[in-house]
Design a protein around this nucleic acid. Structure first.
Lengths: 201, 201
DNA sequence: TGAATTTCTTGACTTTAGTCAACGCTTTTC
DNA sequence: GAAAAGCGTTGACTAAAGTCAAGAAATTCA
């Protein structure tokens, strides 16, 4: 069975995810990879706190992060979970060097590939396929967010819970239940009651 | 007072909006404009119905459109209002020639600039500044949608109403109140009661 | 202009979800 | 291994919002 040489990080899934979106010309991946840096975060460690200027953008090799926002009343609201193979960061804030409104925190121990603001702009010019993949990704994401918004507007918490369970079943095995509740936009108590009710039926 | 020659559409705001985002090289705007077509829609006319493949993407010169989704239960949920100077369309569906999940309807009589799928791809290659503007726009929009999602999760209908009122006051003077309710994710009756309550205080 | 349609409002009632507090259980941490 | 912290559950109560139905007001358009 093949294995990575010691001290060398496994970037297989990174290339796989790029190839899902776009054709990476022969030999360019290595050059592209040089723009990225490896980083490790401990459980519960913050990658970025709201009000800080993001220094890099992220691809998740291993682990799970949450992106959340805290409102005036101090209530947390999770807007995104990034598991392995996901991209996460606040690009508008990073590119404009302005403070982010979001918090980014490792839920588990995380292994990340990160790209600095400077390298991000460079990659964008040097690798046209990267720009392409990026744009297409954002277009889809926007459409998805709009659909999620509509779901939020028309469905009850119970339905949203069932949908998420179908969509990302693995998530429930790795993040605390009250994080799921926050992501669904319901209180932890309500989620607990929903689950109880559903287990009875 | 200057005026446009007869039969020539006024594309001033189109150029203005592009210039807000990016530097348009001298003389390129005219070439770029050739890729776009002028279209007019009557009040309540559909630009696209869910299930159809979008043939073009839109910039609004005059009027106001709504983008909405209908769920399994037949409930409408408005996800976006496009007033003049706004961009609207379902790019992922248009580019992949797959049916859109959204409906696009003119609320008022509308004057639009539209670009076909083919020309969109062409523009994207021929005008690098267009690709740049596009990407930056999508990045910001994604971030905005995430913040709107968080607002949805943590604020009451009343607060969301007040925020929208502050953000887009003109919208309330041109679209029916029950459309606003749908956009806010509350029933028309609830919005009516919120307004009554607020007018008392 | 006037009938038809759409939009908005109100009342009565139900459903959904939030809040606060308490408690048991598990996981960390020192 | 004991204390602390975090997590999930439950009860009692409150608040927010939906539903259904009826009617008033405004708008459209023929």
């Amino acid at each position: 069975m093949p294995h990575s040489p010691p001290n060398k990080i496994d970037t297989t899934i990174f290339l796989e995810e790029l190839r899902k979106r776009v054709t990476v010309p022969e030999g360019e991946f290595e050059k592209f990879l040089e723009l990225w840096e490896f980083k490790k975060y401990k459980r519960n460690e913050f990658i970025l706190k709201a009000g800080e200027v993001p220094e890099f953008s992220i691809f998740v090799l291993e682990g799970c992060l949450r992106q959340y926002i805290v409102n005036e009343a101090g209530e947390e609201s999770i807007v995104y979970f990034a598991e392995e193979r996901h991209w996460i960061g606040d690009l508008p804030a990073m590119r404009s060097k302005s403070p982010s409104a979001f918090n980014f925190q490792a839920i588990e121990e995380c292994k990340l590939l990160v790209i600095s603001a400077e390298n991000w702009e460079k990659a964008f010019i040097d690798f046209p396929w990267w720009a392409q993949a990026h744009l297409t990704g954002y277009q889809k994401w926007t459409s998805m967010l709009q659909q999620k918004m509509a779901e939020m507007q028309t469905h009850t918490g119970e339905t949203r819970y069932l949908n998420l369970l179908k969509e990302k079943p693995k998530l429930f095995q790795r993040v605390p239940q009250h994080y799921i509740a926050s992501y669904l936009g319901i209180s932890a108590e309500t989620l607990s009651r929903i689950r109880k009710k559903l287990s009875r039926d």
